[in-house]
Amino acid sequence: MTLHEVVSPQQQNRKSKAPTLQMETRCYEAELLLHEHNYSKRLLTVKEQLQVTEKELKRQVLKCEQFFLQRIQCEPEMILFYTGFKDYNTLKAFYLALQPTPETLGSCSHMLQLNNTDDDTVNAGFHTARLCLFDQLFLFLCFVRRGFLPIDVSTQLLVSEEVVQMTWITWCHYLFFMLGPLPIWLSRRSVNELMPPFFRTTFAKTRVVLHLTEIQVQLPTSTVNSSHHKGSTTLKSLIGITPSGSISFVSSFYTAAVSDQDAVRESGILNILEPGDVVMTDKSLEIEDLDVIGVDLVSLNFSGANKLLNEDNVSQTDFDHLKIHMERAISRIKEYHIFDDVVPSVLHSSVNQLWTVCALLTNFQGPLS
């Protein structure tokens, strides 16, 4: 029996267009040759061969539809939308600088062991099937930037939601390990060199703008009780932003029961400010301990406008410019939409790392224009 007796004309046309089908046909030829001397095996019918071919075509189509970085690498607008990086080359440079290696993985695992964290959380995600490490980083960035759901990604990748979640948590811990030690607190000289012109003419001694942000986190089922009847809790973190717009300070999260004053005090920001610095806030955040260390406080909330305009000779235009500039800087971290709604309980134990990573990622966007 020859190949043409079992393959239809339609299949012959498909075979000439799809390299994968050519390989499929060669497999059939090999199988037929084996059957010439083994009559105990049944030849595949035309219907059965069509079913195999259809299954292979479906697999190829699904693979083409998967959401991988390669599909949008030539579209800077899409890269910026999904990752926060301005283009593919910038994202690739970031990955090459931080890509996992046996040395960094070993150091990361050792650090987690010292902190009584299960190092399997870090190692397991890197072995996700069907994904190279660069695509894993890309999907993590999509997760935090656009708030992707595990079920959506698992459908595209043809893997379980648990595998997707493990990958995200792995990259969260790894990026925290790599980015966390970076010296983001700028010296007085560096702040002055990068300071926008309108800051120089208004509050030239501004060292940092402080902003207290709140998020909602879903509690694990085992911790939900009568005091958390909705199964979520409010956490708040203090972030510091330089006049140029870079994140220079990120605190851990504190529960809503901790007062703003205590959150500032426990964050450690008071230990790194220097006499003569000016601290600016975007809302009524009173910090009683600043006078003790010789630091002045300026508020940019609307209720403080008269003080700025009258006592500091700041024009209304300058004041509006300052406020808009700081709102833009603060909005950078809020563009990570994973924090828009309640953060899922699976990330409850990693929320500090997740918040810090997202805050530090904004520094790769460059200064505010």
Results as ranks from 00 to 15, higher is better:
residue 154 S to L: 13
residue 183 P to A: 03
residue 320 D to Q: 14
residue 321 H to G: 07
residue 89 N to P: 15
residue 186 L to F: 10
residue 117 T to V: 06
residue 75 E to M: 02
residue 153 V to C: 02
residue 180 G to S: 04
residue 156 Q to I: 06
residue 282 D to W: 10
residue 229 H to C: 01
residue 339 F to S: 05
residue 156 Q to P: 10
residue 54 E to G: 01
residue 311 E to L: 06
residue 258 V to G: 02
residue 99 Q to T: 13
residue 288 E to S: 01
residue 235 L to Y: 11
residue 333 I to M: 10
residue 98 L to T: 14
residue 62 L to D: 15
residue 59 R to V: 06
residue 282 D to K: 08
residue 71 R to P: 05
residue 132 C to Q: 10
residue 154 S to E: 08
residue 74 C to S: 06
residue 72 I to A: 01
residue 42 R to C: 01
residue 100 P to H: 03
residue 9 P to A: 00
residue 77 E to Q: 01
residue 4 H to D: 04
residue 280 M to R: 13
residue 42 R to W: 04
residue 8 S to D: 03
residue 209 V to P: 09
residue 61 V to R: 01
residue 203 F to D: 02
residue 174 Y to H: 01
residue 123 N to P: 13
residue 321 H to K: 11
residue 58 K to R: 10
residue 346 V to T: 12
residue 333 I to L: 08
residue 234 T to A: 02
residue 322 L to M: 12
residue 156 Q to T: 12
residue 8 S to R: 10
residue 352 N to I: 04
residue 74 C to E: 09
residue 28 Y to S: 09
residue 313 N to V: 09
residue 32 L to F: 14
residue 249 F to D: 09
residue 149 L to Y: 08
residue 91 L to D: 13
residue 236 K to F: 07
residue 204 A to W: 09
residue 238 L to E: 01
residue 88 Y to E: 06
residue 295 V to M: 04
residue 244 S to P: 14
residue 275 P to V: 02
residue 172 C to W: 15
residue 81 F to E: 08
residue 62 L to T: 15
residue 329 A to H: 15
residue 257 A to E: 02
residue 22 Q to L: 06
residue 263 A to M: 08
residue 357 V to P: 11
residue 109 S to C: 14
residue 258 V to L: 01
residue 242 T to S: 04
residue 275 P to C: 03
residue 298 V to H: 12
residue 286 E to K: 13
residue 277 D to S: 03
residue 325 H to Y: 06
residue 125 G to I: 08
residue 22 Q to C: 02
residue 358 C to Q: 04
residue 308 L to C: 14
residue 261 Q to S: 15
residue 107 S to N: 12
residue 343 V to L: 05
residue 254 Y to A: 01
residue 111 M to V: 05
residue 152 D to W: 10
residue 262 D to R: 08
residue 293 I to W: 15
residue 228 H to Q: 03
residue 133 L to Q: 13
residue 368 L to I: 09
residue 352 N to R: 08
residue 124 A to Q: 12
residue 222 S to I: 13
residue 270 L to V: 04
residue 319 F to K: 12
residue 279 V to G: 02
residue 38 N to W: 11
residue 146 R to E: 13
residue 70 Q to P: 06
residue 224 V to E: 00
residue 130 R to D: 09
residue 205 K to R: 05
residue 27 C to M: 15
residue 194 L to F: 05
residue 231 G to W: 11
residue 105 L to Q: 02
residue 262 D to W: 07
residue 329 A to C: 11
residue 241 I to H: 06
residue 122 V to K: 00
residue 39 Y to M: 07
residue 6 V to P: 10
residue 328 R to P: 07
residue 292 V to F: 12
residue 368 L to A: 03
residue 181 P to R: 04
residue 191 V to F: 14
residue 86 K to N: 03
residue 267 S to N: 00
residue 20 T to Y: 09
residue 265 R to P: 06
residue 51 Q to C: 05
residue 362 T to P: 13
residue 286 E to N: 14
residue 345 S to V: 15
residue 97 A to Q: 14
residue 248 S to C: 12
residue 349 S to L: 06
